[in-house]
Write a protein that binds this DNA or RNA. Structure first.
Lengths: 342, 342
DNA sequence: GTGAAAGCGCTAACAG
DNA sequence: CTGTTAGCGCTTTCAC
């Protein structure tokens, strides 16, 4: 029931606890090799586990990074975490994961918890572009570096890494148009997520470029979840407008829309092309009727970790910087596209 | 840079740190209401965050539960975590998530880390049914309760919760046969995962029941990942045997197989039915050609948490118990099935 | 109702 | 090379 402490080991061996501490820390400079070996073996034998709480308290730092993500449905965030953990662990950092569930209050609680655990830094994907901005500032002013990834934040002086949503959107929509689509439904993301605005902007830019009319009737609030996407699709169908493509904000919402379309016997991608800016490669792998610009998850994780570690290495020294990455494009050409090219 | 401590608050107010501690803990019995209010307000104003490391050290417990999962690709584990976190948080527990990446050594490191963090209990899904069994026993003998979920463990006296893999498998395969399939490929899971053996057993039981011949040629090692599933499928195709269904161990591996089949212009589910025992509802939602018995993720999480909390409440008192849940079935009937019924 | 003091397990000066 | 000592921030007796 009780854990073995360095004092237990010290008593067992008749040495002082400092010696044990030094030996266990591998301080070859100040411990005789044989003492070292003896201590380590005894620790092993007695089932010693060093108490992180005690170490953190003493050292005044935790060697722990907090990661806050908005949801766990999309594999993007999980994949990001995996890459980030690898990088951070390599630098001797542990990670604590906290999920805000897309709610501002839960996000506050997550951050509070991370502060209580005295994390050395935070990787964060926000659930709202501005609601908790003051809190972010407060945390950073306390000397805890934060790096924001994927979801953009407004009004915060901090390092960020995200993809170029406008370009990604432009690329995707242009691809649709070139493959013969003219009437493109856009499942708009929530306005409190900055990326949504950018993607709408991209959508509009392409229409202008091709001198196609912009009809607000084709823009539907598609939310984030599959349910919201499905609902949005039904809402649009009731408007009775002709359409040949759906460009969704989330992978999840466009898949929700897809289920509605299939129920209505639309053939995909022959009748309707589906596309989105996707979380991860897995998406288009398993949804072979979906076109997507894919986020470079691994690169984003590396970059975010690099930015954070830099700030950790030079406390208070480096200016915040924003890194913008570019997605990879995976497009499923519909038969319509083939006709259009002919 | 420096955090505010209760001593800072005590000095600010000219009271002792004990009083501050009591007030912050909400000990109304021993603190005058006005003092209480004053302390709390000051704490708020000064941006106090209580140091969890110090509390844990003092209290000799962490109010933290560790969750170990083998991978983060499947949404099942993420979904499980979400439910579990909700239950545990409600009981005042924090959670630490650790990922073993299906590797025995990484799993050891995870557990070691959790012990170092002095977690009060562990929810665990193993990457190997027996490799670390001794370690599990050691941890439990130290008084840290463990509950194993989803993946079965061998030779360990501990509480477990998983689905009835044999029944699930029987149900799925029987469904295939009743819908007209006769030659069913089975993508077998790794032998170090107990559930794989059970599912194969289910497969064989059904064949016997229907007096169909068992041909080992139809069993292919399908691994866990999409790549492994694809490779297994290709391997099977080279055998040149006729087949009309694929029953995979993992959602992921059967989707890998699917990509190969599609490349070969098989029509799904008309030429070939695909099915598996799936991680979560999302799976069949987004893969409308896949039939599956779905794990009751939420129920599994609730059950696992309940078992753990029971052990936490009565240390060393409750005997390990195994709970077996049943999956829900979602079947996509192929046109072949319709023909068979006619 | 409040304060003084001890101590959780560990590290890091400082002496020897 | 090793031992002694002083805390890290907090809770919790025990006095008053």
């Amino acid at each position: 029931m009780k854990y073995v402490t360095i004092i237990d080991i010290a008593n067992e061996l008749g040495v002082s606890k400092s010696t044990v501490s030094r030996a266990l820390a591998g301080d070859a400079q100040n411990v005789k090799p044989e003492t070292m070996k003896l201590v380590c073996e005894t620790a092993q034998r007695m089932g010693y586990r060093r108490n992180e709480a005690a170490v953190n308290l003493r050292r005044q730092l935790s060697k722990t990074i907090g990661i806050v993500i908005p949801e766990v449905v999309t594999s993007f965030f999980m994949s990001f975490i995996q890459w980030a953990q690898r990088d951070l662990r390599q630098q001797g950092y542990r990670t604590i994961i906290a999920v805000s569930n897309e709610e501002v209050t839960q996000e506050r609680e997550c951050l509070q918890m991370l502060e209580q655990c005295r994390v050395d830094g935070i990787l964060m994907s926000v659930c709202h572009q501005s609601a908790n901005a003051a809190l972010y500032q407060e945390i950073m002013s306390r000397g805890i570096p934060m790096v924001f990834f994927d979801r953009q934040v407004c009004g915060v002086e901090a390092s960020q890494v995200h993809i170029d949503d406008v370009s990604a959107s432009v690329f995707m929509v242009e691809k649709l148009i070139r493959s013969g689509c003219r009437r493109i439904v856009h499942l708009l993301g929530p306005e409190h997520i900055g990326n949504a605005t950018d993607r709408l902007r991209g959508y509009r830019e392409v229409l202008e470029k091709f001198k196609l009319p912009y009809n607000p009737q084709y823009i539907v609030a598609g939310g984030l979840s599959a349910d919201e996407g499905a609902q949005a699709m039904e809402e649009f169908l009731q408007r009775g407008l002709a359409f040949d493509a759906v460009f969704g904000f989330t992978e999840t919402s466009v898949l929700g829309a897809k289920s509605v379309l299939q129920r209505m016997n639309f053939r995909i991608p022959d009748d309707v092309s589906l596309c989105c800016i996707s979380g991860t490669t897995l998406c288009t792998l398993v949804h072979p009727t979906l076109s997507a610009v894919e986020q470079p998850t691994e690169e984003m994780a590396h970059t975010a970790c690099r930015l954070l570690l830099e700030q950790l290495a030079t406390p208070g020294q480096c200016r915040p910087q924003t890194v913008v990455l570019h997605g990879e494009v995976v497009v499923r050409e519909s038969t319509k596209a083939v006709q259009a090219q002919a």
